[in-house]
Amino acid sequence: MFNTGTEQVAVADDPEERSGGLFRRMRDSLSKSRRAMTQQLQAVMFDPADPEVWERLEEALIMADCGVPATVEVIERLEAESDAGGLTTGEELRTRLAEIVAELMTPPGDPRIDVSHRPSVVLMTGVNGTGKTTSIGKIAHHLREADMTVVIGAADTFRAAAGEQLETWADRAGADFISSQSGADPAAVAYDSVAAAESRGRDVVIVDTAGRLHTQDHLMDELRKIHRVIGQRLAGAPHEVLLTIDATTGQNGLQQARLFAEAVEVTGIVLTKLDGTAKGGIALAIAHELGLPVKLIGIGEGLEDLRPFDPVEFGHALFDADA
């Protein structure tokens, strides 16, 4: 999950553990929502000559919120392979579907969260209600599990009781909490948080920000300022800018990712609420159009319910019949 700068700590990427159920829960939850789609995929025997098969596949991807361009891309690749004689059974079709999805969702670069700097600064962004604060609590918890010390900065100075919510998570995770007055300058809070981590010798700073719609120019400017001020306090920071995307989000998620990335150089997506009926296909659209990787997934409300993203597992979880 993390690049801590010290190799042995990267336990979360151990393939042993992965097969042992790291993704079990994600698959379990995904499988509930996937039932309808899988039934559709199984309902038709694969026959490349049957145009209905392709329509059904298209439908399944659209229903998963993958969006039209990404769906077309996946279908065209499959069709090309089918025309070349590479696919003859429904089983092969399903396997290749998952693999193609995984390919599209694997942009170059390190999929882990970079916390190799001292201190490392992680800036958390996203629209309202996507799960920023909850995700921060979980990330802090996983960092503590990896024996790293954490400071959480409450730069959401706007929403009622946002600070109290974050403080509860900081307590649960065992992280330092840098609070702020309601209505305080969020950039100043971010600055103070980095300063506190430096003076206390903490490993990682996670800065929470207020939820904002990507269309609110003044709030996006505020976010730019937070980003800039962090960089002024500590050269090279923030090292990670994570954007939370709610798995239930439709095609607007693409616009969210685009505008947030334009404003603050987003380094990765945290795909939240994957434990519901939503399939999170918007992440495929985001990876396809913007090349932004999903780095973490949220699958519940507990401290533990955060996982590194694995594109192959995600692809299989979306389409595999027996997962």
Partner: peptide, 15 residues
């Protein structure tokens, strides 16, 4: 209901 909800809106609304 969040207006940004995708295809899942129907499943949620029905449930």
């Amino acid at each position: 209901l969040d207006s940004m909800t995708g295809q899942d809106a129907v499943a949620t609304a029905e449930a």
